[in-house]
């Protein structure tokens, strides 16, 4: 039991980062990016190809992060431009349709050009004993990186002027314009950040299990579940929900069966919507 809870925490931290990228984009711009998982997959693939070209793992992973950020920027500059011209639910609906189209474009290309490829960053080293449980070195390193990322995000949003500006757009877009903040620019930065977060998830996940080119929609869907449970637009909610669902997922996988874990998460999301439509920590209605 301790082992699966610990596994769940490792997974939950990654869920949190995954959902943070989705929830920020939604909170800031009312846009849901269904190609989010594909950005992660592309970043992982770029890392893989860079490593195959002879570059060591760490710089290759950094190039993967750049690729994720660049892809986020491309989304902002291309298909999201017409989305920004709409408001309210029409914006969400169009963003769903267009990013779904983009997801198919990426999936179609990857399945054609790189079928069956996957990033697998094996971290060698003796298992570490945590709370009496032997943890694989990959899990330990992945969690370490994820915790650092969460810390950086916390610092960014809590203590920097830029982070405060981004939060202000989420809380009151018109108010943010009145103090001199350009919401469009913030949105662009957040899409880059969201792409980098997707890349981080792909790279840290690949230290625990391979991330193959078909994983795009699974990653998006996992991110969506966590986002819904945590509250659309809430970053702390994303991390809290990530941990809760990570533990649920891990415990359910080891006691009931892996293939049912997604259904259990779906039920968790459905119950959250019914009982508390704004999610655990959501503020927006």
């Amino acid at each position: 039991m301790t082992a699966s809870i610990l596994d769940g925490i490792v997974l939950g931290l990654q869920f949190g980062v995954l959902a943070a990228g989705l929830t920020l984009v939604y909170g800031l711009g009312g846009v849901l990016n269904l190609a989010y998982g594909q950005i992660a997959v592309v970043s992982g693939l770029v890392t893989l190809l860079t490593m195959e070209a002879g570059v060591p793992a760490v710089p290759a992973a950094l190039i993967g992060l750049v690729a994720g950020g660049a892809l986020g920027l491309i989304f902002d500059l291309t298909i999201l431009q017409p989305v920004y011209r709409r408001h309210g639910e029409a914006r969400v609906l169009l963003s769903l349709l267009l990013t779904l189209g983009a997801a198919f474009v990426i999936d179609g290309y990857l399945n054609w050009r790189y079928p069956l490829r996957g990033l697998n960053l094996r971290i060698t080293g003796d298992p570490l004993v945590v709370f009496g449980v032997r943890m694989r070195m990959g899990s330990v390193v992945a969690s370490g990186i994820t915790i650092v990322v969460i810390g950086v995000l916390y610092w960014l949003f809590r203590y920097t002027r830029l982070g405060r500006a981004i939060r202000s757009v989420i809380q009151d877009e018109e108010g943010s314009r009145l103090v001199g903040i350009d919401p469009q620019l913030m949105m662009r930065l957040i899409l880059v950040l969201s792409g980098v977060l997707a890349a981080i998830v792909a790279i840290t996940r690949s230290m625990v299990a391979p991330v193959n080119v078909r994983a795009g929609f699974s990653l998006t869907v996992l991110g969506l579940i966590v986002t819904v449970v945590g509250g659309l637009g809430s970053i702390p909610g994303a991390f809290l929900a990530g941990l809760v669902l990570g533990i649920i997922n891990s415990v359910a996988s080891s006691y009931i069966g892996t293939f049912l874990s997604l259904i259990i998460l779906l039920v968790a999301a459905a119950i959250t919507i019914v009982i508390r439509p704004t999610g655990l920590l959501g503020v927006r209605e």
């Binding site: 809380q171 108010g175 903040i181």
Partner: peptide, 18 residues
């Protein structure tokens, strides 16, 4: 159009943005 989930201090600091 204040930022309701932020403190008075944070609202004032944002006033000086950037």
């Amino acid at each position: 159009h204040l930022f309701p989930q932020m403190t008075v201090e944070e609202n004032l600091m944002l006033g000086a943005y950037p």
